[in-house]
């Protein structure tokens, strides 16, 4: 074959192959660079266990203290967001995959706008929840932050869940109907458990995204330099700690921001890598 292809055409083929391999390197260099810097500077900032168990010192220029206010805040805000978004996302997916007629107009409009919704900037959700809740209650609050995060996670959970529900074999449903089970029982007791691991994956991916969001929390949960677990009061979160730390001129506060960044990145990567690992296992089990 080589004889029939001119050398010039061959060279061009090789050139393009190498250029695209080079593009892969260009795309991945920042990933390595960011992970390296966050690990290096972050580890230096984490001097002792206190970093994970104490709040920041009242004075941003003081050394010591930690980011427990942010860790606890992220756990609470994201946990509550999950409690809102996962049932909502799973239920909407159940409608699309199980109840909507194939080719249903409404279902495809909903699918389309779920995709559009996941492209809306997260700060718009923050502003929306501000006008809806914060302005009405006259107070920043952790729970309004959860609502904003939930709105972002919802379409993610919905679209991934719908995909997994479609993978559940039709025979399982038929078998359940044959035993006399009504549709809702089939969904609750047969289809959802069969899709369990996949739904969990979608939920974890959504939460990984939600945990890293800063913009929707700026005008809702707002942040709090004290450790707080009151849902109706301002509450910090790891991204807020990093954002505020990055914008101060005080070195100790900046150090704490890097430590918080390392903590957050480990959390988010564990969530999203774990989710993908689950999905991979699931795909192998089904095939």
């Amino acid at each position: 074959m080589i004889g029939t292809i001119s050398a010039r055409r061959h060279r061009k083929d090789r050139l393009i192959t190498r250029l695209s391999a080079f593009a892969v390197a260009l795309a991945l260099i920042p990933l390595g660079w960011i992970l390296y810097d966050v690990a290096k500077i972050g580890l230096k900032a984490i001097r002792s266990v206190d970093f994970f168990t104490q709040g920041p010192p009242g004075d941003p220029s003081a050394l010591g203290g930690g980011i427990w206010n942010g860790i606890l805040g992220t756990l609470i805000i994201v946990g509550l967001a999950a409690a809102i978004a996962v049932p909502l996302g799973v239920m909407s997916a159940v409608y699309l995959a199980e109840f909507a007629k194939p080719g249903s107009r409404l279902a495809s409009v909903i699918r389309f706008f779920a995709d559009v919704m996941s492209g809306i900037p997260s700060i718009v959700y923050g502003i929306f929840v501000y006008t809806l809740i914060v302005a009405a209650t006259h107070s920043f609050s952790a729970w309004s932050g959860s609502v904003a995060i939930a709105l972002i996670v919802w379409p993610v959970v919905m679209r991934t869940t719908e995909e997994v529900l479609k993978l559940v074999p039709e025979e399982l449903r038929q078998a359940s109907y044959a035993l006399g089970a009504p549709k809702w029982r089939t969904v609750v007791q047969v289809v959802l458990p069969a899709a369990g691991a996949g739904i969990l994956t979608g939920a974890l991916l959504g939460l990984a995204r939600g945990a890293g969001e800063t913009a929707p929390l700026l005008f809702t949960a707002f942040g709090n330099q004290f450790v707080s677990s009151a849902l109706g009061k301002p509450m910090s979160a790891l991204p807020l700690e990093i954002y505020r730390g990055a914008r101060t001129a005080f070195d100790p506060a900046i150090q704490r921001a890097w430590g918080a960044a390392l903590t957050l990145i480990v959390m988010v990567l564990v969530l999203s890598v774990g989710a993908r690992w689950l999905l991979g296992r699931r795909a192998r089990a089904l095939s």
Binding site: I34, A208, E213, L269
Partner: peptide, 10 residues
């Protein structure tokens, strides 16, 4: 998956 605030800090 890297949060945007970390891109900002870095």
């Amino acid at each position: 998956a890297v949060p945007s605030v970390i891109y900002g800090l870095w």
